[in-house]
Design a protein around this nucleic acid. Structure first.
Lengths: 223, 223
DNA sequence: TTTTTATGATAGTAATACTATTATTAAAAA
DNA sequence: TTTTTAATAATAGTATTACTATCATAAAAA
């Protein structure tokens, strides 16, 4: 796959100090991804992360208000990156069918590291989003967070896919719900596949192709 | 709707002392539901709950190892109750089409309190499952919990609905994935509807009917 | 009646989720 | 170059969380 310079503009409310701009900030992002992936979001603390990157707890608090904001930051980054990939891969394609298929494939296939941003591992980030992503919005403060546009990247991606669906069939009544179903299922079915396989029909490890078929059938028999 | 005596057998690994059997135990369940609903699972603590029901923190720890187990307990209770309702409502129905429709309706429609168990509010429980349910399995110890059969009620329900799908069309390749998609979407689309409406096509408050139509179309155009 | 069982009251600990202060250092502005 | 600013390191401190432990007492079962 072709690579190109990538700069994702993040919502300023996510952080206190922009982590992209400093060495320490980038280290925080890099190692929070590794660390959350390793021990899980509940066990993850700023103190542990500080130790790992040889800074102090207070040092990390200068960048992020709390660990939930940091999770939102990396999850938002992930969805922005996915939308960026989708825009790139569907560019110049006119057929809505192919665009939808591209979207499904992009969201379902195993993620490989994109080397353009060296301090973020997209592969690990993808696993975090599968396992912890829902925690970014399953809180008592969803609505305030939503008003602060903190879910914009996820919503933008869903709206884009919903747009493809509308192009394919302008009369279909539930493009947004179908779109969020695809995006969510692409991630949660994979989580189930690895952890609660009886909730899926994808037993083996190499069954991402079946997941793609499932989602494609789900969409195209509908619209 | 007709009511009948209801006794749900809970997995013994969920608790240290069976909460159904004592006054204090039932109070713990009753008020944990109310309290988690009110302040959210992250802010919920045994100390706060203890104060509410005029017992001590240590008193609650005699029943549950930690708050995650308590969440699992009430979430499991919910899915057992839903499966029970589904069994009851599809009893003597032979048409798989009608059974699937019943399932969708049961899972999507607003929940009313079932008065047979006076210390559990199914209506509130349903809202908890929409907002916090995923946290029961989005942990680093999913697999051990799964081995301990702690997700059995959820899986049983999905397997039952998958069975209806197989009855309807034995050749359909993804009955389990489609089933878990329905069950999950019935809950998460409602959550979105109230909190992140742009991810759905259900704007108004009274749009549960549209959700039912969306899910029915999703299933029947597929199988 | 004795023994078991459940609860209440209280204490204590390590870890978490922060906030605050001061000193040091590096980079930018004057 | 000097001075100012900005970023980080080092340290301390607090309230809350997530538990464990102990002992007394009341109620129920044997």
């Amino acid at each position: 796959m072709m690579e190109l310079p990538l700069k994702i503009k993040m919502n300023e409310k996510l952080f206190l100090r922009n982590p992209e701009e400093t060495e320490l900030g980038r280290k925080i992002i890099e190692h929070s991804i590794i660390h959350i992936h390793k021990i899980g979001f509940e066990a993850f603390t700023f103190k542990k992360l500080a130790k790992e990157i040889k800074t102090t707890e207070a040092g990390i608090y200068r960048y992020f208000e709390n660990k939930h904001r940091l999770l939102l930051y990396i999850v938002d980054w992930y969805w922005s990156w996915q939308e960026y990939r989708l825009i790139f891969q569907t560019n110049n394609i006119t057929s809505p069918e192919i665009k939808i298929k591209k979207a499904i494939q992009l969201l379902s296939s195993p993620v490989e590291d994109d080397t353009t941003i060296d301090y973020i591992s997209e592969k690990i980030l993808n696993e975090i989003v599968m396992a912890e992503g829902a925690k970014s919005f399953l809180t008592k403060h969803v609505r305030e967070d939503n008003q602060d546009k903190l879910f914009k990247p996820y919503k933008d991606l869903c709206v884009r896919v919903a747009g493809f669906i509308k192009e394919y069939n302008p009369k279909y009544k539930y493009p947004h719900s179908l779109s969020s179903t695809i995006v969510e299922m692409a991630h949660s079915q994979k989580f189930y596949m690895h952890n609660l396989p009886s909730l899926t029909d994808f037993g083996g490890a190499k069954d991402e192709k079946k997941l793609v078929s499932f989602l494609e059938e789900l969409v195209f028999s509908n619209i």
